[in-house]
Amino acid sequence: MEMTQTPQTPIYTAPPGYFRRLGALDWLYAAALLGGALFALQRYGAYMDIYEKAILLLSAPTFAWLGWHWKQVRWLMVVLAVLALSAIAQYDGSLPAADTRFFLKYALSSQSAILWMSTLFFLSTLFYWGGLVTRSDTGGVIGSKLCWAAVVLGFTGMLVRWYESYLVGADVGHIPISNLYEVFILFSLITALFYLYYEEQYETLQLGPFVMLVISAAVGFLLWYTVSREAAEIQPLVPALQSWWMKIHVPANFIGYGTFALAAMVAIAYLLKSRGLLVDRLPALEVLDDVMYKAIAVGFAFFTIATILGALWAAEAWGGYWSWDPKETWALIVWLNYAAWLHMRLMKGLRGQVAAWWALVGLLVTTFAFLGVNMFLSGLHSYGAL
């Protein structure tokens, strides 16, 4: 007599929780960040107010989460720590060492590192375009590695410049995001980092040629500004910028600017492909559309935060949350533009060439808010004038 087996219903097993998926290296990385933050607090806490201490301590879990989510951040943090601390040790507390020590003069003083960053970004652009034109992944791979090298040296230069500002004078020292020279470096680095993240997530090298164009344009302006205005010289902060608000408002703002610029360059690729150009060399239209949407969504979130922080800062510095200063007015225009773009996409299904053209026009609006206001208009933000 045959026995029939009743099929068993498979038992559903829920995936492990987020923290249970983390391994020993993940926790070691987080512990190292926390240790570094506590060391900095112990050594420099006497020079910080309560808000700056909070920013320092919150940076540890923030960068820990980034490193857990995107593994590349781990080695980036380690390399930056090694290079920046090695450079700082060479100074021996004396700024003139930057002109006498070989390691500093030709590699890792702030100006040298930023010049290397600029050169590497230009070379990265050439290799990305060479790979696209010749249909070779080799050019894109080399371009990607050069872009990573530029990011490393750029952030190293910024960290060393931060230290150099304190060597100029204890009352001069400040985080290097206070003038056009410094924020153009920040813009280039943020745009490059977000691009490299999307490059890895979507496993494509074909967006590099387009995104690197806007980065190279920023670097070109940076070099012109450096030569024509001697902008690399470290200057004391104007009174309006002597606030801890600057440490969070400016980075949040430039995450918005960087991702909006990235979205616009992806929009150019979208428009070319949708018109039958470079069809076999660019990612699918769906991929381009998705990158464009995610970049704008991230940028809008951070730009919103930056605008709110800016209003709070204005209330402290000038006695009012909003004064219709030209910079504030154009920031509102930028915000409304991308709020409308996201509304149309989420509520009305905005896609295709209209969305791409809108994102491209958005870059022109953003550029005027970022740079044009400084060139042609005056107001409470006139300390950022060209």
Rank of each mutant, 00 (worst) to 15 (best):
V291S: 03
M292W: 00
M292I: 01
M292S: 12
Y293M: 08
Y293V: 06
K294L: 11
K294V: 09
A295I: 03
A295D: 04
A295C: 08
I296A: 00
I296S: 00
I296F: 00
V298M: 10
V298K: 01
G299A: 08
G299Y: 07
F300W: 14
F300R: 04
A301M: 12
A301Q: 03
A301S: 12
A301N: 07
F302E: 01
F303E: 03
T304V: 08
I305S: 08
A306H: 10
A306Q: 07
T307G: 13
T307C: 09
I308V: 15
I308T: 11
I308H: 01
L309Y: 05
L309F: 10
L309T: 13
G310D: 05
G310L: 00
A311Y: 01
A311Q: 04
L312M: 13
L312F: 13
L312E: 11
W313D: 00
W313Y: 02
W313N: 05
A314Y: 06
A315R: 11
E316N: 12
E316C: 06
A317W: 06
W318T: 03
G319S: 09
G320S: 15
Y321S: 07
Y321F: 15
Y321I: 01
W322F: 12
W322N: 05
W324D: 09
P326K: 08
P326Y: 09
K327W: 07
E328V: 08
E328Y: 04
E328M: 06
T329S: 14
T329R: 09
T329A: 15
T329Q: 07
T329H: 03
W330H: 05
A331I: 04
L332G: 10
L332F: 14
L332K: 05
L332D: 02
I333K: 03
I333A: 14
I333R: 05
W335T: 03
W335I: 06
L336F: 15
L336C: 11
L336P: 00
N337L: 14
N337K: 02
N337R: 08
N337W: 15
Y338V: 01
Y338Q: 04
A339G: 14
A339R: 07
A339H: 10
A339N: 09
A339F: 12
A340N: 05
W341Q: 14
W341R: 08
H343Q: 04
H343V: 06
M344R: 10
M344F: 15
M344S: 06
R345E: 07
L346C: 03
L346Q: 12
M347A: 14
M347Q: 11
M347K: 12
G349M: 06
L350T: 04
L350V: 08
R351E: 13
R351I: 00
G352Y: 00
Q353W: 01
V354W: 11
V354F: 14
A355Q: 07
A355K: 11
A355F: 04
A355T: 01
A356F: 07
A356L: 06
W357R: 12
W357P: 02
W357K: 11
W357I: 10
W358P: 05
W358T: 12
W358I: 09
W358N: 10
A359Q: 03
L360P: 07
L360N: 02
L360D: 04
L360R: 03
V361G: 11
V361T: 13
G362Q: 00
G362W: 01
G362M: 05
G362V: 01
G362H: 02
L364I: 14
L364Q: 09
V365G: 09
V365P: 03
V365I: 15
V365H: 01
T366S: 14
